[in-house]
Amino acid sequence: MMTPGGSGRFRPLPTAMYAGYSGTASSWVAKTSVSASGKRIQREMAELNVDPPTDCSAGPKGDNLYHWIATIIGPLGTPYEGGIFFLDIIFPSDYPFKPPKVVFKTRIYHCNVDTAGNLSVEILRDSWSPALTITKVLQAMRSIFLKPEPYNPALPVITRLYLSDREKHDEVAKEWTLRFAK
């Protein structure tokens, strides 16, 4: 008699409190449950802010630490010169042990980037090492701008043109840069 009434009276208050806190509590739990990768990503973010690689910038897209957005400015002396290329970086929950997923959001005429923006870069696949950081990934991205890897192509059509007619390739790449990346 007494206890049901008491609990009935007091029950709404804790549930209301719980409901009010549930949103923040769940997000907080979500971060701590993968604290190993979270700590690592946070540390990488700090390092990136202190010493960003040339022509590159990166940071979390919103408040999700595992979804970053990065920009790479086309290096001088390449057909991508002057273009700003956006990339999505998605960290897996077991991040340092699995490579981040990097996708070009800006269209680019490049033999290592397919039409969906996926990259055929070895360090993001089999050659990934947990010792690599996002800074090094961005440096690798920039290096394929400077020197495409035709023997590991995502689009063999572009590779063929790159190897056979470099001038034509550069011309098309420059045009794409002008159209999509500026």
Binding site: R43, P96, F97
Partner: peptide, 12 residues
Amino acid sequence: VAVPSSCPICYE
């Protein structure tokens, strides 16, 4: 002595 103070993978 060149032992790193923290793990280069997880930074612990």
